[in-house]
Each structure stands twice: as structure tokens, then as C-alpha cells.
């Protein structure tokens, strides 16, 4: 599958929300999702993307899910003044109108825990973002190599 098809698929999935009126989440666009391949299933995986709020209401990202992992949380890596790298759940993330939140290496990331299957380079998996207004956005996340540095590989 080439990149264009992937993007088209992702867009299709993203806009196929049920016919209910949501307060904000229908204006959420997920751009450039990608993940690193895993070695087997024992180690947690990570996925990255930019979540854009194109609407006029603030939206709060409350949860993530995928059939690939039993547990998914947004974690934040940070480095203390002493140079110690730490990682902790980021909690709920609110995105103001017109703003975006970047999940990128060394910062916020979707952490995939208790993987059900290995994350294999070249494959994709669906990832659903749930928002506080009850809306959901699902994107297809391409899996890149373990050494990938960004959505371009």
C-alpha cells in the first residue's frame, strides 16, 4: 500500500464518525500518525501523531484504544534539571480551538502496553482517539522500522 492510499484510508476512517452531533471532536484531524516496530510482544510500543483541533471549541482527549494492545495511554517523557529522563502518564490532554498537540519522540507518545501481536514494519493498525464530548476519531497508523525518527522513516 502506498502512502497516498494510506492517507486516503486514514482520512476515510477519520470522517466516518457516526451521525451524531459532537461538541468539538468532529473537527479533530490527526496528521502524520506513525509507530515504531516492536521486537515481539514483551516490550511496550510507541505511536506518534499530530492532533489538530480545527473547530471552535476546546476538545479533550480522554483515551486511546487499538485492537493491537490491551492498554494504551498517553505518556510524557521528560528530562529533569539533573538530566534524568523520566516517563509518566500525561493524563487528559485539552486542545484549544485552532491549536494542535504533537506526539513526537522524546515528548508525548501513545504507549501501547500488553501488545496482543507484534508491531511489524510495513503493516498498519487502527488507533481510536476518544474525546470528552463522546466523539471518536480513528486513524490507520503505519508501522515504521524500530530506528525510525519520524513519519518519514
Amino acid at each position: 500500500m502506498d502512502r497516498m492510499t494510506l492517507a486516503a484510508l486514514a482520512a476515510l476512517v477519520a470522517f466516518s464518525a457516526p451521525g451524531k452531533v459532537f461538541a468539538g471532536s468532529e473537527d479533530v484531524v490527526v496528521e502524520q500518525p506513525w509507530a515504531r516496530a516492536s521486537i515481539g510482544v514483551s516490550r511496550p510500543g510507541a505511536a506518534y501523531m499530530t492532533v489538530l483541533n480545527k473547530g471552535e471549541e476546546a476538545v479533550t482527549l480522554t483515551g486511546l484504544s487499538t485492537p493491537l494492545a490491551k492498554m494504551l495511554e498517553i505518556h510524557r517523557s521528560s528530562t529533569t534539571a539533573e538530566g534524568l529522563s523520566t516517563m509518566a502518564p500525561a493524563g487528559e490532554i485539552t486542545i484549544s480551538p485552532g491549536e494542535s498537540v504533537a506526539l513526537e519522540p522524546g515528548g508525548l507518545h501513545a504507549m501501547l502496553m500488553r501488545l496482543q501481536t507484534a508491531m511489524i514494519e510495513g503493516e498498519t493498525f487502527p488507533l481510536t482517539l476518544a474525546f470528552s464530548d463522546g466523539g471518536e476519531v480513528t486513524v490507520d497508523v503505519p508501522i515504521l522500522g524500530i530506528a525510525a525518527r519520524g513519519p518519514e522513516g
Binding site: 510507541a46 505518556h75 516517563m87 522524546g106 504507549m111 525518527r149
Partner: peptide, 17 residues
């Protein structure tokens, strides 16, 4: 450590770069 999903692969791939 290899069970680190974010910072360690990032460090290793930065260094590889």
C-alpha cells in the same frame, strides 16, 4: 534500557544518524 518505548529508541536512532 530496551523496554523503554520512547527515549531509548530515539536516542539510539539519533546516534545512528
Amino acid at each position: 534500557f530496551t523496554y523503554c518505548p520512547d527515549v531509548c529508541p530515539t536516542t539510539l536512532s539519533d546516534i545512528s544518524g
